[in-house]
């Protein structure tokens, strides 16, 4: 039999993007410590429905830490206190009986609140749309082993590509900057041989789209701290280097036309 916890929750409730929000206090009693954080919210919601109250909307889907849908501020920290862990993988055994837990949505001007704990993260798709791909139309590919990629290079690309797009980096950043997300997307492609042809076009377009929506990076490092995949800030440095270079390379290329 698992341990049971009695908790007090302070949850941000907001009916829609235009409505005023407020904190609501709920008792969450007899929560089994084997439950995940989201299952704790499920239990609270079932209780609310039974009492005739509208349940709390919270973002979630795969509950395996990979889809990137979930994410709330737990006691002021994106995805809570456990390092390298998405909200869905956080389990109640990490909390103590009697705890008060403050639960808020991601806070960033670029992410309007949809309802309660759910926000609109669509600007991240705009960044990818601007150039976060390798142009490889179906049917044009050479044999997959034709271009050898050193293991270290493939591993580094994979480290960047592991980003799940949850936007904890933006939520944790005091400037609401999206440098970690953008640089992970850029470095995944810029580091690979296949990504070279569009390297500087991609970098310039993605960085400038990012800047339309998000704040600037001032090297706080909160992003990597909050990242459930522990994506390294090094990628931001690589992105900045490529961005500066893009200003020269892209201009020179333009002049050649």
């Amino acid at each position: 039999m698992s341990r049971r916890l009695n908790l007090t929750l302070k949850v941000w409730r907001q009916e829609g993007p235009a409505a005023n929000g407020h904190f609501e206090v709920y008792k969450a009693n007899e929560i089994p410590d084997d439950a995940s954080f989201l299952e704790m919210l499920d239990i609270v919601n079932e209780g609310l429905i039974a009492e005739g109250h509208t349940p709390i909307e919270f973002p979630h889907d795969c509950r395996e830490g990979i889809c990137g849908t979930c994410g709330v501020m737990i006691n002021g920290r994106a995805h809570g206190q456990e390092k390298g862990t998405a909200t869905c993988q956080l389990h109640m055994r990490k909390f103590n009986d009697g705890d008060t837990i403050v639960i808020e949505p991601w806070r960033a001007a670029a992410f309007p609140i949809v309802r309660d704990l759910v926000v609109d993260r669509s600007p991240l798709d705009k960044i990818v749309e601007a150039g976060g791909y390798i142009s490889a139309p179906t049917g044009t590919a050479p044999d997959a082993n034709e271009i050898p990629i050193p293991k270290e290079v493939a591993d580094s690309a994979m480290d960047a590509a592991a980003c799940i797009g949850c936007a904890a980096c933006v939520a944790a950043c005091p400037n609401s900057a999206a440098q970690l997300f953008t640089s992970a997307k850029i470095w995944h492609l810029n580091s690979l041989p296949q990504g070279q042809a569009e390297r500087y076009r991609r970098t310039e377009a993605m960085v400038e789209t990012m800047e339309e929506f998000f704040g600037s990076c001032t090297n706080h490092g909160e992003c990597s701290e909050a990242c459930p995949k522990e994506i390294s800030q090094d990628f931001i440095a690589y992105m900045n280097r490529d961005y500066i270079k893009s200003k020269v390379v892209n201009r020179r290329l333009a002049g050649q036309r």
């Binding site: 791909y133 390798i134 490889a136 179906t138 049917g139 044009t140 590919a141 050479p142 044999d143 997959a144 271009i147 493939a154 591993d155 690309a157 994979m158 590509a161 995944h188 492609l189 690979l192 296949q194 990504g195």
Partner: peptide, 9 residues
């Protein structure tokens, strides 16, 4: 082939 060309690591 297709996925490698797209940059799947």
């Amino acid at each position: 082939d297709q996925m490698a060309a797209q940059g799947v690591p």
